[in-house]
Design a protein around this nucleic acid. Structure first.
Length: 143
DNA sequence: ACCCTGACGATCC
DNA sequence: TGGATCGCCAGGG
């Protein structure tokens, strides 16, 4: 487990941010990346979740980190190598009341307008400790 | 040490 | 509108 300290801090930040997603809500990898101060690395957020320990004794694990609440920017549950993975994520979301629909190509989608959680990010002096306030009114996708 | 892959996302054709 | 490319960078072989 010899990750560099920086990498470990990143993992920690990501897991902590994911824990802030409200029950029954979802956000994107990209938004988590922004929340932790590294807006250009949404991909690494995926890496973190991919490596989220199953072991309940781990500091961060599948039990205390709501990994299922993170989907991609298109509102689709990111397909892994195997479709079963995304399916189980859909099941986990449905278990908390989130409605998951299936697209023409079998994509599992969640309506951001209904379940999206994209708090405004307030820049701080250091750029590290980012504050976030949840704006109850989700801006659909108008800009 | 090197190369390929990838739970992403913004841009560029 | 949508597929292809690029940037990022940790993991795994």
């Amino acid at each position: 487990m010899a990750r560099s300290e920086e990498a470990q801090a990143f993992f920690h930040a990501v897991y902590s941010a994911v824990q802030e997603i409200p029950h029954g809500k979802v956000t994107s990898y990209g938004h988590i990346a922004k929340l932790v101060g590294t807006p250009q690395r949404p991909r690494q957020v995926g890496v973190c979740l991919k490596h989220l320990p199953i072991d309940p004794s781990a500091r961060f694990n599948h039990e205390n980190v709501p990994w299922q609440r993170v989907i991609n920017a298109k509102g689709v549950i990111s397909p892994r190598s195997q479709p079963e993975g995304s399916r189980s994520q859909a099941t986990a979301l449905e278990a908390e009341g989130v409605i998951v629909t299936t697209g023409a190509l079998g994509e599992l989608m969640v309506d951001f307008a209904e379940y999206g959680w994209f708090p405004r990010i307030l820049p701080s002096e250091e750029g590290e400790e980012l504050e976030s306030i949840d704006s109850e009114e989700g801006e659909s996708d108008e800009e």
